[in-house]
Simulated scan of single mutants.
Amino acid sequence: MHSIERPVDPVTYRKVVGRFATGVAIVTTRLDDVDHVMTVNSFTSVSLDPLLVLFCAEKVARFHDAVLEAGVWGVSVLPASMEDASRFFAHRGRPLNGQLARWPHHLGESGVALFDGAIATVECVTTAVHDGGDHSIVVGEVTALDTPSDAAPLLYHEGRYKTL
């Protein structure tokens, strides 16, 4: 492994990696009859055989420990019309009770909440967790999926929400 002689400025790093446009998704899990929900833009396909996807969870977020303990999770890929949900679930410290009430949703086969307005949904069982600095990289095998809507996707680019 190569060592870096001069550190990269984190502000510049964030600006540079922010140039990579991403979709926006909400990841959900359920632990002890409580729904845990978090907005992510770090969701990606990993493998076709087996079918694997991953997302990254910040270690200090309460969602982190809940999803690791639950072992199952769902992903709802958001349409442009759900920016409000993305913003809401990106904020820390909101009350857990009733947090899903504003958005139509249903429980998937694994018992996790999936948003009815999503353009794609994926349910997973955790197969591996890797250290990723201040985040954990959570890898899951896909157990169910759907494409409930053909709406335009919500995008995130250079620190702002955008649409196609």
Rank of each mutant, 00 (worst) to 15 (best):
H2K: 12
R6E: 05
R6H: 06
R6Y: 02
V8Q: 04
V8P: 03
V11T: 02
T12R: 11
Y13S: 07
R14N: 08
V16A: 11
F20V: 01
V27F: 12
T28H: 07
R30E: 15
V34N: 04
V34R: 12
H36C: 04
H36T: 00
V37Y: 09
T39H: 13
V40K: 03
N41I: 08
L48T: 05
D49E: 13
P50W: 04
P50V: 08
L51P: 14
L51C: 09
V53G: 14
L54W: 06
C56A: 14
E58A: 13
A61E: 03
R62T: 08
V67F: 00
L68N: 00
G71K: 12
W73D: 03
G74E: 02
G74L: 09
V75F: 00
V77M: 11
V77K: 11
P79Y: 03
S81M: 06
E83P: 00
A85N: 03
S86Y: 06
R87H: 04
F88S: 08
H91D: 08
R92M: 01
G93N: 13
G93F: 13
R94M: 04
L96A: 10
N97S: 15
N97E: 15
G98Q: 02
Q99M: 06
R102M: 01
W103T: 03
P104I: 01
P104W: 07
H106G: 11
H106D: 05
G108E: 09
V112T: 05
A118W: 02
A120W: 02
A120R: 08
V122N: 01
E123F: 06
V125T: 14
V125C: 07
T126P: 02
A128G: 07
V129A: 13
H130V: 01
D131V: 08
D131W: 00
G132I: 02
G133E: 08
H135W: 12
I137Q: 02
V139R: 00
V142F: 10
A144T: 07
P148F: 05
D150E: 08
D150G: 02
A151H: 15
A152D: 13
L155Y: 06
H157C: 11
G159C: 11
K162E: 10
K162I: 00
T163N: 12
L164P: 15
